[in-house]
Amino acid sequence: MQFETENLEDYEIKKAVWDIIKKFDTIIIHRHVRPDPDAIGSQCGLKEMIKATFPEKTVLVEGASVDDLEYLDTMDYVEKDLYDDALVIVTDTANIKRIDGENYRMAKQWIKIDHHPLDDSYGEVEWINTEASSCSEMVADLWLTFPDEITMTSKAARLLYGGIVGDTNRFLYDGTSPYTMKVAGELMTFDFSYTDLNDKMNEIEPTTSKMMGYALEHFELSKDGIGHIILTQEILKTLGVEDSDTHPVVPFLGKIAGVKVWAVFVEQPEGTYRCRLRSKGPVINIIASNHGGGGHPLASGAHAKDMKEIEAILNELKANV
């Protein structure tokens, strides 16, 4: 099924992407470091679509394995010399420095597929759609644009559906459009249990529940609606969790009444801080870009080298509300 939602420019860039994919025998797909479900979903979902359409092609996914996302899919081992004549596709990655892996630079050609506001421009072909809820929606849209050429499978549909669910927070975020729901509905017609997948994505470990309790108790909320919490290495160690376990806290804290903008600062082993920034209205990605990060207007990431920079970020958030 093809939805009539695109203009000629949209169609032409998708046609260019698909025409290049058809030309290469070896395709290696990358995504960003510290992946979320959309990064894995778009990366591995695209792989499954290409493999189903062209079984003779070598299609691999590159990046560090992530234990808590292996219910979606796992990464391949990619030999360095495969890049020499390969096409590299990078999904869901606004900045070159956030691409997981280094050998992509050796590829014969690059394609960038992303739904974040343009930050770094890279690749011979860039398909950027900031109106899409997720990169997984974009990959599914590629299939819906060329349904007679591209084969969708149950595995690919499950991956792309999971990516959409992850980046829309189960269709709750503003980025969810009527077209997002149509795409999700089309993917749900394939043979996979979206109920089981939703349950798995909603599951938290007992240690994470302890951390969420700690976060509720120690979350600081100012009278103007700026909320934040700082999770130091000492706190993480006490709670028995790591940085990768902290992501469920971020949407959870946004449910507190009165919160307009909130930030979760997680200390890294070297003493710097990873910053997750979220908003219910004020644009925050410009602030994130001021501190080595970026992202969407209402959901971004940044970095702080010390407590002084954390204070600077909070002051910028306050001035923006």
Rank of each mutant, 00 (worst) to 15 (best):
T208I: 12
K223F: 05
G185S: 04
S121T: 11
S300V: 06
K108N: 12
P297E: 05
D141V: 03
D36G: 08
E102R: 03
Y179G: 01
E270M: 10
H303S: 15
I111D: 03
V88D: 06
Q2S: 12
E4A: 15
P297H: 11
I313L: 13
I21F: 10
G123F: 11
P251S: 05
L298S: 13
T153F: 05
E242C: 01
A319F: 13
E311R: 15
Q233I: 09
P282Q: 13
G45M: 03
M1A: 14
N95P: 02
W143E: 01
I28H: 08
T168D: 04
T145N: 12
S42F: 10
P35W: 02
S177W: 06
K57S: 02
G254T: 00
G213Y: 05
V78H: 08
G185L: 00
T208E: 14
F265Q: 07
K15G: 03
S222A: 08
T272E: 14
L277R: 05
C275E: 12
R278E: 07
E48H: 02
G101D: 08
G281Y: 10
G295N: 08
H116E: 08
F252K: 04
Q233T: 13
R34Y: 13
G166I: 01
V59L: 09
P117D: 06
M49C: 04
V88H: 03
M181K: 03
L253K: 03
R274E: 09
T246W: 00
